[in-house]
């Protein structure tokens, strides 16, 4: 009985060089063609969508093509009385979009456009007794939100406003026997959660708590024969997981453990030569989310046409240098 290998086959005619100009055109045009239906469907995550688009434009040196004033005004109108920021106007505030908004404002060097003290109060107010963070006032707990909280505060230089020790304690309770992390204590290891937790431990200066060899092992096992990385065993490879796994490996100093050339081949094969943009897998529909993580992944792999990206915050290194933030990395 044969086993169907869960992987993709990269065709010989798949793209093998980087089409940066096409990607910039794709992102620049994305915001302007607001098909009502598609636009409506994704409005609940609009702020993160803008962060993905702007960050990839900045990494490609094309940020000036985007409408800075319009975007900053939009963010201002998404800040709520409680200090939290929502995905779009009329939506409810949430830590996910609060982080995205702060990241965008850092790209534009305009953090003062919003009420920073209120953002800090909002984040602080979401910390629970056990150190975990709720995503919003309704109380859902997830290690993703721990990352959002410390990343937001780190970008604002206000990490001292929360109980960092407790926050670390909670994240460590989500560590598993394989060295990975899940969303809550007892939950399965997942590449996205691992990225959040290693990023969290980097920002809080606690990377020594990670079993880097064990976790590195698990992360390397995500690489499939096609070169692409998946997020868990027996899942298909995906450009966004390629980023999360690669960034985690970079954070824990084990990026040289995977086959970089094969991963690069996989990521390049996920481009659409005609429309620009990256898809999750070769031949699928492109979107801004996978376009950012494709370009950012290539940057981590050392592509010199792209600005260096920071593996913890997924932002251009020059932006973090400007605000004086240098998250720890293991060597």
């Amino acid at each position: 009985m044969g086993t169907q290998v869960k992987d993709v086959i990269i065709k010989p005619d798949a793209p093998s060089s980087l089409f940066l100009d096409k990607h910039a055109d794709y992102i620049a045009a994305y915001g302007s063609k607001k098909d009502d239906y598609e636009y409506t469907l994704s409005e609940y995550l609009r702020m993160s969508g803008i962060y993905w688009g702007l960050t990839v434009m900045d990494l490609m040196g094309q940020l000036p093509r985007m409408n800075r004033e319009e975007i900053i005004d939009f963010i201002k109108s998404c800040q709520h009385e409680c200090g939290g920021i929502s995905a779009s106007i009329g939506h409810d505030p949430h830590l996910l979009y609060t982080l995205s908004a702060v990241q965008i404002l850092c790209l534009y060097d305009s953090v003062d456009a919003i009420d920073v003290d209120k953002v800090v109060e909002y984040v602080k107010g979401l910390q629970q007794e056990d150190g975990s963070f709720a995503g919003d006032k309704w109380g859902e707990i997830d290690t993703r939100f721990s990352f959002c909280a410390v990343a937001t505060l780190a970008l604002l230089g206000k990490m001292d406003k929360i109980n960092v020790d407790k926050a670390v304690e909670f994240v460590l309770t989500c560590m598993n026997f394989d060295g990975g992390f899940g969303c809550r204590p007892g939950s399965e290891s997942h590449a996205g959660q691992i990225y959040c937790c290693t990023g969290f431990l980097s920002l809080t200066g606690q990377l020594h708590q990670v079993n880097a060899d064990l976790l590195g092992w698990w992360l390397c096992e995500r690489q499939l024969p096609s070169g692409g990385l998946n997020g868990r065993p027996e899942k298909l490879p995906d450009v966004c997981y390629s980023w999360w796994v690669l960034a985690s490996l970079k954070i824990i100093g084990r990026i040289h453990w995977i086959d970089k050339a094969k991963l690069r081949t996989f990521i390049l094969a996920c481009q659409d030569e005609e429309t620009g943009g990256f898809a999750d897998r070769p031949g699928d529909m492109v979107d801004p989310f996978h376009t950012l993580f494709g370009v950012a992944g290539l940057s981590l792999l050392g592509d010199e046409q792209i600005k260096p990206v920071n593996p913890v915050l997924c932002m251009p290194e020059d932006v973090l240098q400007r605000i004086g933030l240098q998250p720890d990395l293991l060597s």
């Binding site: 009502d36 239906y37 409506t40 106007i89 009329g90 939506h91």
Partner: peptide, 18 residues
């Protein structure tokens, strides 16, 4: 009908929220 139903109920709720 989804293509017009969704934007309609979506906008209605957001107007209420604002």
């Amino acid at each position: 009908c989804v293509k017009f139903l969704l934007p309609y109920v979506h906008n209605k709720l957001l107007l209420y929220r604002q």
